[in-house]
Write a protein that binds this DNA or RNA. Structure first.
Length: 270
DNA sequence: AGAACCACCTGGCAGC
DNA sequence: TGCTGCCAGGTGGTTC
């Protein structure tokens, strides 16, 4: 389920258990993720300490002093803190065993996630081309207006383009466009200043609200069962095809854009 | 440069 | 019960 809010909630949940901890071992049970998990992690990581954990888009970066452990959750990944003695289950592909006796465990059934190592995050190919952070001040109406000039692509797939702005996945793209009252099929370049400003604001509030909702369930983050503090969001259009729009009661529609489902209200998204 | 499409992989669910 | 087909929160690569 991980879009930016889920990754950020994961970061906050992990931080108190990771930062300052010495790494005892790295366990790779299945190296066949989106990118092969480097075998030499088993050798590199033991003895290093985790100095911090930061998020860039949907990536998490563990500062290990000598380098950075780069993590991505893909479509189905989750990270939890469990006692290192907890038996691994079918899709538990990677553990970072800590001096505390706990380990950070990656579960990822579809294996679209990533566990990589880099000494230069700024120039790492997966990170170097990333766009602006949507919660940073640099992202706003002016930025969005500039970024969309001359673009004939529909605004929804553009919002999900990590080269422009990071972290906005299918759910929150749908929700933010609903919030802003903008039809997802609108050609990006046709949005004026006003609508760009409204959309940028909607992106920020949608993401911030989701983070806040997840943060409130952080106490469930650590444990051996189920999900790491993910939360059931109340979506207003996503997954609600055929239902009444909460704003104008028109029937919510579902279409395809770039092989992804788009949900919108034909009544109030123009 | 930009846009459209494919690929990677497993699990859950609807329909028969 | 069990099979088939379709769908799912991401993103890098290829093609035109």
């Amino acid at each position: 389920m991980p879009e930016l809010p889920e990754v950020e909630v994961t970061r906050r949940g992990l931080a108190p258990h990771l930062v300052g901890q010495r790494i005892e071992a790295a366990v790779v049970r299945h190296a066949g993720l989106r990118h092969p998990v480097p075998e030499n992690l088993r050798r590199i990581l033991p003895g290093l300490a985790v100095h911090g954990i930061v998020r860039r888009g949907k990536y998490l970066l563990l500062d290990c002093g000598a380098g950075w452990l780069l993590l991505h959750l893909g479509m189905s990944g989750s990270l939890r803190i469990v006692p290192a003695s907890t038996p691994a289950e079918k899709h538990d592909h990677f553990d970072l065993v800590l001096a505390s006796g706990n380990c950070m465990r990656l579960r990822d059934p579809r294996r679209f996630g990533a566990v990589l190592w880099t000494t230069e995050p700024e120039t790492h190919p997966l990170l170097a081309e990333l766009g602006v952070e949507p919660l940073d001040a640099a992202f706003g109406g002016d930025f969005l207006h500039r970024a969309t000039r001359g673009r004939r692509t529909a605004i929804k797939p553009l919002l999900m383009d990590s080269h422009v702005v990071v972290g906005i996945g299918n759910i929150y793209a749908n929700e933010a466009l609903f919030d802003a009252g903008i039809n997802p099929k609108t050609a990006a370049g046709r949005l004026g200043q006003t609508r760009c400003a409204r959309l940028a604001e909607a992106v920020k509030t949608t993401l911030a609200r989701a983070i806040a909702a997840g943060g409130s369930s952080l106490r469930d983050f650590v444990g051996s069962d189920g999900n790491p503090g993910y939360f059931q969001q109340q979506y207003r259009v996503y997954g609600r095809a055929g239902q009444a729009c909460p704003r104008c009661a028109a029937t919510i529609r579902q279409i395809r854009q770039g092989q992804r489902s788009t949900f919108y209200c034909p009544g109030c998204q123009k």
